[in-house]
Amino acid sequence: MDPNQLKDFLPLFTGFLGGATSAGVFAGPIQTFQDWWYVNYGHDVSNQAALLRAKNEIDVENLRNSTLQEVATIPPENVQEPPLKILGPALEASKYYIEEEELRSMFAKILASSFDNRKNSIIHPSFVEIIKQLDVTDARILQFLKGQNPLAGSPIPIMKAVIRSDSGYKIVFPIIYFINGTEGINELSSSLTNLERLGLLKIEDDKYSTIDSDYDFIRNNFTVQQVLQYHPDISFEKMCFSITPLGMNFLEVCL
C-alpha cells in the first residue's frame, strides 16, 4: 500500500490522542493496522462508497473508531507492532460480527490489545475463536462479571431447582442465574454452559459460597418466587461457578 495512504488513519488516531505528539511512535503500528484493514475489507477507508461491501457501513466505522480510541489510551512506550497471529484473524472474523455492539466491542478490544506490549503475557490467539462462538447473552454475562471484579477461582452463586422424593430426584432447572436484563432462566443457563465449554468458566455442582445471603438475588427473583408459589415441591439448592485463569485473561483483554 502507498505509504501516503497513512493519512487515512493517522489523523483520526492522533485526534483521539488530542494531538500529534506521538504520531511518530504510532505511525508504524497504525500502518500495519491500515494495511490489514485493506486486506480484509478490500478498500481505502477514505472511499465511502466501497464500504458497501460490509453489511453495515456504520458498524464498520464504529469498529474502526472504537479500535483506534482504545489504542490511543496505550502509553507510547508500550506501543508495539501488532502480532499478525492476532490482528489478521481478528480483522477477518470481525467482518461477520460487527452488527452486534457487544461482540463488535470485543473485537475492538482485542485488536487494540494487540498493540499493547503489556498484554503480551495474557492475550491469546484462541480469544478470536472464543468471540466467534459467543452470542449477545454470553457477552452480556461476561460484561456483568467484569463489572463485579471477580477473582479467579472464587465462587459465584448459582442455584438449581430439583424435586426430591424417596425414589430419587428430578432436576427441573440445572442452572439458575440472573443478571440485569430480560434474559430468562433457560437462556442464561445455556450461556453459562457455553462459557464453560469455551474454558472461561467452571460450573461446580457440589460446591457453593459459604455466604448464604449471596444467593438472595436468586431466591428473591420474581420468576423463582412464582415457581415456589405454584410448585411447592420444588426446592432450590446452592451451587457456584468460578472464572478460570483463561477466563480472567479474556476479561482483561476483550472487555
Rank of each mutant, 00 (worst) to 15 (best):
P76W: 03
V79S: 04
K85W: 12
Q34N: 11
D44M: 09
A139L: 04
Q133R: 15
N65T: 05
L10Q: 13
P75H: 04
N65E: 10
N78V: 01
L111E: 06
D135F: 05
W37E: 05
V39H: 04
E70P: 02
A20N: 03
A93E: 11
Y97H: 13
Y97I: 01
S105W: 04
T73A: 14
A139Y: 02
Y41A: 11
E99H: 05
V39Y: 08
F26H: 13
F9D: 04
V45A: 05
D138C: 06
E61Y: 10
D44W: 07
G88K: 12
G88F: 06
E129C: 01
H43G: 06
L68N: 06
A108T: 02
N117V: 05
L51G: 01
P125S: 13
K146V: 01
H43C: 09
L84W: 05
G24F: 06
L134A: 08
V79G: 03
E77L: 06
E101G: 10
S94Y: 06
E61L: 13
V71P: 04
S46K: 13
A90W: 08
E92H: 09
P82T: 13
H43P: 03
L91M: 14
Q148E: 07
V45D: 05
V25D: 12
T21Q: 06
S105A: 07
I141E: 03
D135A: 04
Q48F: 11
D59N: 13
L145R: 00
R53W: 10
R104K: 12
F33N: 02
T67R: 03
K109D: 09
D35H: 11
K119S: 11
A112F: 08
N78M: 09
S94G: 05
V25K: 03
S126Y: 03
F33W: 09
P82N: 11
T137Q: 03
Q133L: 11
G88A: 14
R118F: 07
A72H: 01
I86Q: 09
L51Q: 02
K109Y: 14
I123K: 14
L111Y: 05
V60M: 08
E99L: 04
